[in-house]
Design a protein around this nucleic acid. Sequence first.
DNA 1: ATACCGACCTGTCAGC
DNA 2: TGCTGACAGGTCGGTA
Length: 270
Amino acid sequence: MPELPEVETIANGLNKRVAGDRIDSVWVGSKPEPLKSSAAEISATLEGAKVDRVRRVGKHIVFDLGSEKTAGDRQWIVHLGMTGQMLVANPEAETPKHTHLVAKLASGRELRFVDPRRFGRLEVRQTGFTGPGAEPLSIDADDFARLFHTSKAPVKAALLNQKLLHGVGNIYADEALFRAHIRPRRRANALTKSELRKLHAALQKVLRLAIAAGGSSISDYVDADGEAGYFQIQHRAYGREGKPCLTCKTPIKKIVVGGRGTHYCPKCQK
DNA sequence: ATACCGACCTGTCAGC
DNA sequence: TGCTGACAGGTCGGTA
């Protein structure tokens, strides 16, 4: 579900609402665990910890923790998978189905991790998490070009490869390629310098616009307050198969690249 | 190394 | 109304 703009919106919302708060107690569900660390390890680390800051790295939410036990050297890393939500709620509010973790905060509120498909992952670790790849919003055009020049994969697949850039997912890969007028199946290392430059600019632009709109809400995405985002009304390729291209009216095509549904304009994208 | 594909899960929607 | 199958914002591991 959530790509970089959605995770950024969620992390910023969480930071605003829970930074400075303390986790008093933790409940972890017993189902097959959506965990990378064990339930016991997560509870032991989170209980008594103060939330210093919440931020985004790639598609991960990072809680920087401080506590007397751990001397502030621990982090709680949350990946939302396709359907994960991290919500701040009042304890009286009904607990949604598929709630896998509830952290009671000193302020009286609760932090709830909800994830129907259980593709999300929770992990506690030492500080220093940097994510698997480069940050799409900070990388400059030259480094971007060098990075993509190393990949023989279709450019769409390269955009989704988190070891190259982390944070780009299916929606924004399609949107960036549309805006850069590049076909998704082109080999990344076959793109010209000028095309890579356009792709870099298009990607950063679409991510920034989406962050400004609070992310894209398709079915179940909501931020930490349970609010939907609005970028989906600005999608030009993703989810528009058969509809006229907003530039040239040619019907948008849908194909499969790297196992993912891929939308593009056969006329505008070369 | 690379790329395709199924697996992991549940929910929803289209089609019959 | 209800069943079946396809599909969904992500990632991982196996195989060719």
